[in-house]
Design a protein around this nucleic acid. Sequence first.
RNA 1: GGGGGCGUAGCUCAGUUGGUUAGAGUGUCGGCCUGUCACGCCGAAGGUCGCGGGUUCGAGCCCCGUCGCUCCCGCCA
Length: 624
Amino acid sequence: MCRPALDGSRGGSPHSAFFLEVFMHAYRTHTCGQLRKEAVGQHVRLSGWVHRRRDHGGLLFIDLRDHYGVTQCVVEPDSPAFAEADKCRSEWVITVTGPVVARTAETVNRELPTGEVEVRIEEVTIQSVAQELPLPVFGELDYPEDVRLKYRFLDLRRDRLHRNITLRSKVISSIRRRMIEQGFTEFQTPILTASSPEGARDFLVPSRLHPGKFYALPQAPQQFKQLIMVAGFDRYFQIAPCFRDEDARADRSPGEFYQLDLEMSFVTQEDVFAAVEPVLHGVFEEFSAGRAVNALPFPRIPYEESMLKYGVDKPDLRNPIVIADVSDVFSRKDVEFKAFKDKTVRAIPAPGAGAQPRSFFDRLNDWAKSEMGATGLGYVVFESEGGKLAGKGPIAKFLPADSLALLAERANLVGGDALFFSADAKKDRAAALAGQARIRLGKELGLTQEGRFEFCWIVDFPMYEWNEEEKKIDFSHNPFSMPNFDRTKFLALDPNDRDTILGIKAFQYDIVCNGVELSSGAIRNHDPDVMLKAFEIAGYSREVTEAKFSGMLNAFRYGAPPHGGTAPGIDRIVMLIAGEDNLREVTMFPMNQQAEDLMMGAPGEVSQRQLRELHIRIVQPEKG
RNA sequence: GGGGGCGUAGCUCAGUUGGUUAGAGUGUCGGCCUGUCACGCCGAAGGUCGCGGGUUCGAGCCCCGUCGCUCCCGCCA
């Protein structure tokens, strides 16, 4: 086509096209996002993808796109480049050469940073052609997830995803800079490690050298980072890949994800908060694009309080609704509503909901029954009648005036407001339904404020919980957390003293933003005796604990500093900042919900030879 | 493992109570068009209605099964 002659056979003055070609970069002198009015008159070369072509017969426009932007290029039929340019279709990769010209006032495109100029095509080189696209790059339409994932390289060309992934990179580099500025040091930890008995399901990697033995991919570098503290490195961080073989959710990638993993020595819980808060606050402010971030220090909310007031351990504080316990009101002798007697009853205020139609209340009731497995969601609508509050709705008739007034006071409601009730014999279930109802009400009544970030710490998690199915005590969260309990008394605990044990809090905390759990952390248990006792309570004999955690227990017997840390989820941070509600929108090459990589074909079958080397034989599950 | 939603042209979707040859937009191909920027106009090609079975004179539509995608529950120290 129109390649520059490199043998010098065509002579030319310094002003000839030939001179410019020879001294011009083979692919580009500028990017597609670079040219402005100041460049008018320059002879330039651009390379990129054909974003869009507009054929006017007598005039052909090609919008050329690369990572940096879009530049309009134009060619007329009498140009020697027209025939070649006319062949170009969407997503072909081409190189164009020609002068930058100013657009006339009427033809300037204000939407485009390069919209004041265009490149008049004198020469086109087709670098790569494209078949008809399974997924158009141009436009903002939504496409099926499987097509997007199979042709991820096309999806990634699209503006929104391209920007999200670029944003992710910027967020990570900002985090890294802020951590280093705070005196943290980045270290790598192994990817092939040992399976650990607690927590999620492991991904296993068979060992070739050791028949019948397996590595596991780390669920998190938990033990390693504690060992780094024992090794005296004081402040560690890592953008750490974590692998868990559990089912996916919109906010939980299948298989793998990244954490800002960090650990510090000689710290209290407040020291960890003080180290993490400015990093998160700083990075969210940096990329907030006008959205407010709540001020430091972030509120600390005890777990019990969160479960009462918000019905979840990850409250969305953009939602002003606060749940109240009203069990006592329904236990009063003058309240004859049998369905709520002797149950935990939580009241969810719905300010302004009195104006909603009957269908609004019915819909919530249906939702509670069908999706939450509840018997229903009772409600009362408050109305002002001559300066006094009157109750309306199906259960209002069971509530005498003074009980009604008490409810309104507890829920801080006035006429025109409504109050929903979540009741269950089990406190946890009443709280959970109330929590979900709070979220729905906040959204449907428009009370949850968009466009802001509300962080909080949830603190004082219980160390243990009762496993009803197996009738035993389990760790409720991280087994390596330090119990917030007198050491001597802890070591002397009777493992059957269930009431005392279930009341023990741990130095364990989550950080939550807008109802999304960003991280879980703890002050660690660095005392081997306390650790053995803690595991004994959860049903692990000393021998088992010694065997399973020998590496760490041993280390703690050679001088271990008190230490603690946390690990905010990188993907979720980027998701929040990008304003997306699915992790796949901020992950370059995600797997689908069934943990398959549709582009690369993973997981895939392997050869018999590979299996033999690994001493593995496949046993297919029986179909039935 | 369980529940909900979806599956119709390359892509996004419509398709009435079960009734003639399954439509639109976009993309593709062809024609026209010198200032568009979602260019416009005319025309054409493009369909195993996810797959299998059933009911029916007749199924995109109803029933059963199955597969795929997705959201949720379980699970996620």
